[in-house]
């Protein structure tokens, strides 16, 4: 990175904030904000510990299963909504409602229904991710040129073949965008689920750290989470850019 008249790379603003954080931290203004260097040191210290690794395992599993459900259900539902006006009319109000609903408020209800445990966390995660996946998939399917669908049909494609060979590919740019945003929401979902259920994974660690005012631990965990979400989003963003070339050439 260069300064004074030179072009700065994208992430350089983060560096400025990091420096600012370090200064404020060193000034010892508040117990809530330890210096960044201390947090990073703490991160290196706690990441290899057993309690961290097992919490990471539990969280990663809940995340993967939850987003797995969101993708496996969200994409077919989105395709159906894009294809059928009737299904669209039936489901769209609900999807829109859940997309903007404060899902956190639902978690206690889920706890009653599914118990205080991993199941509830997984369902919370899926609920955070699924609606945007449905909506984006639907938007992707709606712009598929009708002749592409007729083509598949005229060459004898079954509904199954049309789904796997035409719909998800033709709508792929939108689907990937939905999955990327859905996954970011799911990171939020899995932590909120664990926090409210408060017996498992990172949620339990967060609870533990903040209750005991272990702010270095707290921030270290948050940073780990931030990096995980960032890597995930970048990875999916990379895939999205790879299919960009045909997003432009699909127009009917």
């Amino acid at each position: 990175m260069k300064l004074f008249g030179y072009k700065l790379p994208m992430m350089s603003s983060l560096l400025i904030w990091a420096v600012l954080w370090e200064i404020v931290g060193q000034l010892d203004m508040t117990i809530l904000l330890p210096p960044l260097s201390a947090i990073l040191a703490k991160m290196v210290e706690i990441v290899p510990t057993n309690s961290f690794l097992s919490a990471f395992g539990v969280t990663a599993r809940a995340f993967l299963v939850g987003t797995g459900f969101a993708v496996a259900i969200g994409i077919p539902v989105g395709v159906l909504m894009g294809k059928s006006v009737l299904i669209d009319r039936l489901l769209l109000p609900w999807v829109n409602m859940f997309l903007s609903a404060p899902l956190t408020a639902l978690v206690p209800v889920l706890m009653v229904l599914f118990g205080i445990g991993e199941q509830t966390v997984i369902i919370t995660t899926a609920l955070f991710a699924i609606w945007i996946i449905v909506l984006d998939t639907r938007a992707g399917v709606k712009q598929i040129s009708s002749s592409l669908v007729e083509m598949a049909h005229s060459f004898g494609a079954s509904s199954f073949q049309a789904f796997f060979k035409i719909y998800i590919w033709a709508a792929l740019p939108e689907i990937l965008a939905g999955v990327r945003i859905g996954f970011i929401r799911a990171v939020k979902g899995v932590i909120i689920g664990q926090l409210l259920v408060s017996v498992v994974g990172f949620g339990r660690l967060f609870e533990l750290y903040s209750a005991n005012f272990l702010m270095e631990h707290f921030w270290a965990l948050l940073l780990v989470l931030f990096f995980a979400a960032f890597t995930l989003a970048e990875g999916l963003g990379y895939l999205e850019r790879k299919v960009d070339y045909y997003a432009a050439s699909r127009a009917p």
């Binding site: 007729e150 083509m151 049909h153 005229s154 033709a170 045909y246 699909r250 009917p252």
Partner: peptide, 18 residues
């Protein structure tokens, strides 16, 4: 319905861009 005895050529080509 469609059948193997007929094949369509489309005005807008209808190719799969991927």
């Amino acid at each position: 319905g469609p059948g193997p005895d007929r094949a369509f050529v489309f005005q807008d080509f209808a190719l799969m861009p991927w």
